[in-house]
Amino acid sequence: MIPTKEEWVKALTERHGEELQNAFSSATVAVCGLGGLGSNIAISLARTGIGKLILIDFDRVDITNLHRQQYKADQSGMYKTDALRSNLEEIAPYVEFETHAVRLTEDNAAELLRDADIICEAFDRAECKAMLINFVLETMLDKYIVSASGMAGLGSGNTIKTRRISEKFYLCGDGISDVSDGIGLVASRVMLCAAHQAHTVLRILAGHFET
């Protein structure tokens, strides 16, 4: 049986405390790209009771995604926005979700990301990562952005780190493991990096900033 909203809020508040849960539940976080990083980031944030998640990806679920992304085999062919929303609603039915099955570009980013307090960059391609970081840091000065670079392969999980590059720009990953080298991405290491990103979001909302 699905708990009521009151039961769900009470359980989260008992765990996190009222002040922290209020900070989580009043936040809006955008997840840009719903692959191995973004699908895992969204699940962690939904479980924590973030108020609203803005989920953006133009792509559809493919069989080649299933080894690392949080989709089910029978969701192949669905838009990732629809599939992830469905999965998240099963996990955390009282989080507000806004989905956009579009490619995020410099032309639509300002509008799509306007309501976000924190933006998670979770794209696959290096050029797209750089585009979003430059766009947000140049034009959306009130936003925090949490990005990722370097999480491919079977390198040690201990090399995945979070660095605060500047006041509102955080970067997770090992910085060097490119997806085009070696075996590509594996679920466990991409999840580690996604967990760094989601955890950084929670720490920012809690007022714990890296030095």
């Binding site: 979770a122 696959d124 290096a126 670079s149 500047s166 490119d178 590509g184």
Partner: peptide, 28 residues
């Protein structure tokens, strides 16, 4: 502070500047 892409050509590096270049690799 971010250096806008359009300003790379006119940004003159000065003594004691501290520059961080983030070079992204693919994967996500």
């Amino acid at each position: 502070e971010i250096v806008p892409k359009s300003k790379y050509g006119e940004t003159v590096l000065e003594d004691d500047d501290c520059v961080e270049i983030v070079s992204f690799v693919g994967g996500g």
